[in-house]
Nucleic acid binder design. Structure first.
Lengths: 216, 216
DNA sequence: ATTTCATATAATTTCGAGATTTTGCTGTAT
DNA sequence: ATACAGCAAAATCTCGAAATTATATGAAAT
């Protein structure tokens, strides 16, 4: 039998990879069958996901997938820039060579995948791999910051960001610029230039601050 | 019968005002009686509180009140400075006169209470009033920032910060410096000097960045 | 045709019991 | 004395059904 934590992870990744339509109702009775557990168990999971912003909840009106909104994406991006820039600078200060090695490795992986995608429309599987590598790179940036609080907060924001972005749209034109952005962040971090690093983290996410990535 | 949202609020405020000992076990069966509902309902509430960091949860081992730790308080303070400084600057830019008036009002209230406390050891009731006013002032700083995401995040952090701080300790010696800090933040904000405002927000919280407020 | 109200249907919320797992205790062997 | 196994007690987790509340349907009145 699937323990509740598994259902939590499974539902979470489905929400983040846009396995549900935005605004769709999430009925515990329906999801119950898919996971082979009771409705109460699903309900608990949905409650937990609602407190971290991945599911919206209204009393007596059940659970829903949050709607997409340009404002929300802009706000989430803003917070990501704030936390990621701060966390990366902290990692630079206290991460040492071990962190630099980890970051270089994460970038190498991501870079490899992105150059494969470059130009063509990738398969579902490639998209999933890219998502994992992109997440890994951005998590590695802040992994040595020394603040569990920052990392947990960033995790919440990143998940909501992904949910808003709908990578499933397959608009991978941005990949080529992404390659340059990620390289620029890596170079700045390795050089130890804190101001430059902050700038490059900001530049990488800046296109989400205008609403253009949501078709505005 | 108390709806679940009431139990959530009630438990939350009890956790924040240190109505439970740090590290204490939170058994659903016990809390059930206090709120006159079933254990399952309490369990759901505890789950929700765990996702926002006010309750710690371990699989098959139940719920606990998070332990106090200097590191945690330092991390929470760091994040508060980051978000509160940013949010206040955003409020300065887009809040207008209406926001300035609200902030002045909130400060006036807080200032009044703090000058009454000054020197003496206050009663439970006064502490509760002060807590409310202090929360109100800091929320007002960021209320006009325009980002629901920032406000929600800050709310989570503020709650955890309060839980760590244990105001119940009644060490109100800091009140006199607090009065000056709050006034300095207000003045800086009203003057429109963004850099100065960031500095004053930082200064106000700086004493929590050393661990001294946890007896180190 | 639109609104209002009563009814029927469906969804949500609460509950307490049964199944599972952990925890504490006791006796035995090293 | 310490370590370990087995047993008992207590706590946690899961479940499905009952109670409550929202939503949809349709009839009557304006």
């Amino acid at each position: 039998m699937a323990p509740e934590s598994d259902i939590y992870q499974s539902l979470k990744s489905k929400l983040i990879s846009n396995g549900f339509a935005h605004g769709a109702k999430l009925r515990a009775e329906v999801l119950r069958e898919e996971y082979g557990c009771s409705a109460s168990t699903v309900r608990e999971v949905l409650f937990r996901l609602s407190t971290v912003g991945l599911v919206s909840f209204q009393e007596q009106r059940g659970f829903r997938v949050p709607d997409r909104s340009p404002e929300k994406l802009i706000e989430l991006t803003h917070m990501r820039v704030l936390l990621e820039a701060e966390g990366t600078v902290m990692s630079i200060r206290r991460g040492g060579v071990a962190w630099e090695a980890k970051l270089t490795a994460a970038h190498h992986q991501l870079s490899h995948i992105e150059s494969r995608i470059h130009g063509q429309t990738p398969s579902d599987e490639i998209v999933a791999i890219w998502s994992g590598a992109e997440k890994e790179f951005h998590e590695t940036l802040i992994v040595a910051c020394g603040s569990e609080t920052l990392k947990k907060l960033h995790g919440q924001l990143y998940a909501q960001f992904r949910q808003q972005l709908m990578v499933a749209d397959r608009d991978f034109d941005f990949i080529s610029t992404n390659i340059q952005h990620h390289a620029a962040i890596l170079d700045a971090a390795l050089s130890g230039d804190e101001a430059l690093t902050r700038q490059k983290v900001h530049d990488h996410l800046a296109r989400h601050l205008t609403g253009e990535t949501l078709g505005l």
